[in-house]
């Protein structure tokens, strides 16, 4: 089956977060881990907000987590999301990483609740990009 590309928004990739989006192209959810104190951070930055170290490496998350909170877009706020209404934007607390803002897909919005377990699902997006979204855990 051909992948249906539903996610067409261009994302502005800048120098600080380029590695994150490069990871998304390869379906790897990457975050910066501080080489000195071990803190895993998001959003991307050249400096660790815990210890101010400039040294870091990109590490891959397993993509398991819990819904902290979510909202349901019932009206499109951009032409690119018209077809997706209603859709869920959620904040997921990753087991092995930072809090991450994403979408919950493959379910009705009414099925989503705070504190539900979710797992990573890569969704094809514009160009060669995939977006790290989440689905309700089995």
């Amino acid at each position: 089956m051909m992948n249906e590309i539903k996610y067409t928004l261009p994302t502005k990739i800048q120098d600080d977060n380029a590695a994150f989006w490069e990871g998304c192209k390869n379906q790897r959810l990457l975050f910066q881990k501080c080489s000195e104190c071990g803190h895993i951070r998001y959003p991307a930055s050249v400096v660790c907000p815990e210890c101010l170290s400039l040294e870091n490496e990109w590490v891959e998350s397993k993509g398991e987590g819990t819904v902290y909170s979510y909202v349901v877009f019932r009206r499109p706020f951009d032409n690119s999301t018209k077809e997706r209404i209603p859709y869920v934007v959620a904040v997921v607390e990753l087991d092995d990483g930072p809090t991450f803002r994403t979408n919950i897909v493959d379910c009705e919005p009414e099925q989503v609740a705070c504190d539900m377990r979710v797992s990573l699902k890569w969704e094809p997006a514009v160009g060669d990009l995939y977006l790290p979204m989440f689905k309700l855990a089995e």
Binding site: Y7, L9, P10, T11, K12, N17, P43, Y68, S69, Y70, V71, F73, F77, D78, N79, S80, T81, R84, Y87, V89, V91, R101, T102, N103, A113, C114, D115, A125, L131, M133
Partner: peptide, 29 residues
């Protein structure tokens, strides 16, 4: 020009309303 300009836009996360609503949903819980 209606071009998304941040990481949130990739997930359709637009507007301050969504951000406040996110805090509000957790407060509901």
């Amino acid at each position: 020009t209606n071009v998304a300009k941040n990481d949130g836009a990739a997930f359709g996360d637009f507007s301050q309303m969504a951000k406040y609503a996110m805090v509000a949903r957790r407060a509901m819980k």
